[in-house]
Design a protein around this nucleic acid. Structure first.
Lengths: 200, 200, 200, 200
DNA sequence: AATGAATGAGTCTTCATTCAT
DNA sequence: GATGAATGAAGACTCATTCAT
């Protein structure tokens, strides 16, 4: 509603996320991003110290968005089964709603990176790791509660959790935003699968 | 046929897959690969027309390996549930057994590639797509059979199949070849999850 | 005239000289300087039209400081030998006392500079050249007087003068301001060397 | 006499030294160098891993050349005074004969360098330091011998040596290769100054 | 006076690819 | 078959400078 629609920083973040999601992080140059924004490379470097920091900012935003959507369901009083189902649905909805941001995360999951990292980047990375740990812990607790109640199979959670999250990440790979798609149908089916995957 | 333990081609393929898996396809130069082989860049270009062809060869090999491991279970007489379980186990075993090759595939799933592609590469790519389609069809048929028999939930298979495969791909992201790990335990648990995800 | 301890201009000059001396003129950005001052880049550009002008101001200050220290001894009535010794001592003392400023001068002795120069900068440069010529002439006259009196060897002064000044500049390269160093000892020894270098 | 006048490596070294000497190390880009050679930037990077390594190679060559010229006089049986005079003359001759290479050394004497250094570069640097230490030790021993014999003043050699070398380096700053200049005259005068600077 | 955003030209470096030997 | 030299295009990053506020 203000005169400037969005802060420069946010615009860059959006443009970068979109480009990275479309062509891949490594295949997208800072020049590419600045070109799509009709801005100079310098502008990007004024706001982000390096390509790595830009990527981290996107990843952090993605994780934060997911946490914001899923968190409320974790803190509800539902039974483990229902809670997991709701969390899963929220996760899938997040994936689809801000597709570009979350696609970048997946690409960075390998995260090896021989490149030199800025000090800022290292800080961002540890913040991200903390958020991700928090996030995984929500699923861990939900699963543990379900196991204790006999709703879920006894299982090695260090295997279960990442695999469960893979199901919920799946739309990242194939979802194409068209007009007619019904997001909640997809979310529902994937949540069914997720719950089924761990239930007795 | 030759006296050598392994053909030059296979050695290159192995070295490339290992390097690509470790550092990422885009972060690994042809020079890097040749260096790990104590060979020259030229040698690689003798056997593969371009970096793209090299990648495709790795991907094709990966798909073929998976097909070889999973196929026999598809062609068995087991009930859909058991068949899916066996196929899933075989898939996970493949992932872990030739980790490097399969990791490359994941990275190339985006596959956009703005770069110019060789004629050879285009051919390889369509062969790969054909193999992958065959592979997915095995799962499709197994699932359809299970749905018909009422063992599996009615569901949108175009959502189910890629999501199911995501579970089975999961170890690619976190498996680290250490001494003591029990591959079959992991395969069993993931197969359980896969079957659970689609069952009533 | 103002209440401030030091004018903004002088603060910038000090910070710049220090940074230039430490990291080298070309390796120090205007940003680096402003950062060490906890000020903005713009502030520097308010007081100095360009990086070149800033450098020139430092150089001019350095030359002026040296002239101020050495001049009085030139205008004394001492014998050429004694006069040269005193001038040399004063020069070395200057070098060590305002190390940073004089280090910048050395770096700029090449002074080629392909870059475009401001009008201001051109003016500053000719003022500097004039001061430097004055300075060298003091040594020239002292040496000529000594030669005439038979205290100094007959020699090509266009070779002698710059070489003599090199001895006196030497501390710039290796002097490190520590606690216990005795500046006057160093100055005395170098002055001995300078006089010895030209004497019969 | 062979068909190729000079190795690619040596050509690059020469072109780089010339350009660095003329415009300064920081003001000369790798592009500049390759342009003067009618070659591609890539060629330079094929032979030298980084700009830093290229500079080091030049410096090392410079030090080696000087050592080769001065060494023989150090190992002669002359009296300290005569020996120092001969060494000084040889040093000056070296400076003037391969002016470009030695000019680069002077610029690098500050040597701070915030830039990241290659492993190769670090190795080169320590080799250079070793050579330079050897070189300074030749002067140190010659001076100590002269002091013991009462030909040279008692003095702080850690001050004397670098200052003495500054005199001998001086031509680097002002020598311009013209037709008629008499190198040996300059060398003789500077050697006189050097010996005078340390003698009783 | 001072600030912070923005620019654009330039710099070092990398790398897939080609080619003569 | 294999090698090492060479190329050219691109990419990440820097920085002096300008300008609106």
């Amino acid at each position: 509603m203000s005169v400037q629609t969005k802060s420069a920083r946010a615009s860059i973040l959006d443009a970068a996320a979109t480009a990275f999601a479309e062509y891949g992080v490594d295949q997208t140059s800072i020049d590419d991003i600045s070109r799509t924004m009709n801005a100079s490379k310098g502008k990007i470097y004024h706001h982000f110290g390096s390509k790595g920091e830009l990527i981290c900012a996107i990843v952090k935003h993605s994780v934060q968005l997911t946490l914001d959507r899923v968190g409320p369901y974790f803190y509800s009083d539902a039974t483990p089964s229902k809670k997991l189902h709701e969390m899963a649905q929220a996760h899938v909805t997040a994936m689809i709603s801000e597709l570009a941001y979350h696609r970048v995360v997946i690409e960075e999951m390998r995260g090896s990176k021989t490149d030199k990292v800025t000090v800022n980047e290292r800080m961002l990375r540890s913040e991200i790791t903390a958020l991700q740990t928090d996030y995984e812990n929500m699923f861990r607790k939900a699963l543990e509660a379900g196991i204790k109640l006999g709703q879920f199979r006894k299982q090695d959670l260090s295997v279960t959790i990442p695999s469960l999250l893979m199901i919920l990440h799946a739309p990242i790979y194939w979802y194409e935003p068209r007009g007619g798609e019904n997001i909640s149908l997809i979310a529902a089916q994937l949540a069914d699968m997720a719950v089924g995957a761990v239930s007795l």
